[in-house]
Design a protein around this nucleic acid. Sequence first.
DNA 1: ACTCCCTGAATTGTATGCAATTTTGCGTGC
DNA 2: GCACGCAAAATTGCATACAATTCAGGGAGT
Lengths: 244, 244
Amino acid sequence: MTTATKARAPSPARLPTDDVPKRRRPGPTRAETLATRIAEAITDGRMPPGTALEEERLAAIHGVSRTPVREALRLLAATGLVEQRPRRGAVVARPEPGRLAEMFQAMAELEAICASLCAATMGRADKARLASRHAMMGRMVEDGWVDAYRDANVTFHEALYVGSGNGYLAELADATRRRLAPFRAAQLGGKDRLAASHQEHGAIVAAIIAGDAAAAAAAVRVHLATTEGSWGALAGQPPQLQFG
Amino acid sequence: MTTATKARAPSPARLPTDDVPKRRRPGPTRAETLATRIAEAITDGRMPPGTALEEERLAAIHGVSRTPVREALRLLAATGLVEQRPRRGAVVARPEPGRLAEMFQAMAELEAICASLCAATMGRADKARLASRHAMMGRMVEDGWVDAYRDANVTFHEALYVGSGNGYLAELADATRRRLAPFRAAQLGGKDRLAASHQEHGAIVAAIIAGDAAAAAAAVRVHLATTEGSWGALAGQPPQLQFG
DNA sequence: ACTCCCTGAATTGTATGCAATTTTGCGTGC
DNA sequence: GCACGCAAAATTGCATACAATTCAGGGAGT
């Protein structure tokens, strides 16, 4: 099949005003673009865990040759979103139940750390912003705006990550969250759960504003432990722990 | 230069005794082998941060074509050990000082979690094994066996990771440790530091055996905070010299 | 002498071709 | 009818060829 015969754009065409670039951002390669797209398809649920990722098919779909597809798959494999068996192709990662439990626990601990750091180091302005975001989500709950809440929920948690002031930690948390995304699809279903989630968020925000790191960590663990409930049938989970 | 024209081995040469493989281990691909080898070269310090990773050179060195090299580099880029600028080649990752500080802090927190989990969930036998390993390291300190201690030190920390009972967490911790490895090269230099390190380990082990999660976490933070001291000079050294 | 531009070389990104292995379908024997 | 084995097809792994961009050096212009 003669794939990828589309007219190639003549390049990002560096404008002369780009002489002093704010950030070095030479046009992304096809492999990176592909990796992003495929990753989105996976986290969005369009490609559920277990889906076979055939190189030639992906190449045809995205209008490129197999080479960038292979590189994108390697990237995603290192990220953990896909699984590559040496001569047997790649599939969307499908962790075993025990593994999933481990990832959820790690996620909880990572977020607990972030929340602790938020409580300890966040500035007044940032705390206020977090609180206002939380208040806004409260209105979404009242109005039954489920979709909006789901998006805001992701943003809220990411705010905790970056609020930790530790970019590396934020990346670890974010990466873990993305890897878990395909398994949280059916979450936040009922309106009860929505309200409960918001209330738990409230505890987290309160602890952070109060500057109580231990309380913030604890509140996060409570929150994540309950959200795990939706998949809990999958695996028995190890006991939660407490540390400072 | 016509690289990689060496006679290709007729394959990993699956020995007939391999007919009934204990585990599905289809021979690793060249890209994976390469990634492992390059990663070792980086963590060992043979390729210090900032080293340019030219594809064709690596291909020639390892006797393969550029294709597996590129895939290996993608893998390592996703791991964070190397940095890929879109059209400008790859180099061994050289995080900025601030970033390094973040990574060390995250490392400490990850290990603190692991130690907490060790204290909370480790079985009696495993605790005993950890203690005996610690005792062995004590003898190394007495005898001034610096090299052996360095190796044992890595093993000790990895024992904490796997002792957490959470494989995913262990992977995160291990990956972070590998990324930091190039910046700890000159560590554990003096004998004083050796003894101090061992003493700090002792606090960790004691807390774990006592089942005191909070104390274990605290001891780990103390330990890592002091070991960080040795890299301060190193990190400040190259103030991000502004070359490409 | 310095700057700018232009050209050539080096290097990366992508496509394609071939070899090897896995997978699949079918026929044969039990 | 079912299991086993073999052959064809499909798919991955690797190498090479080509295209495009970046980098380096020199020469003309100011």
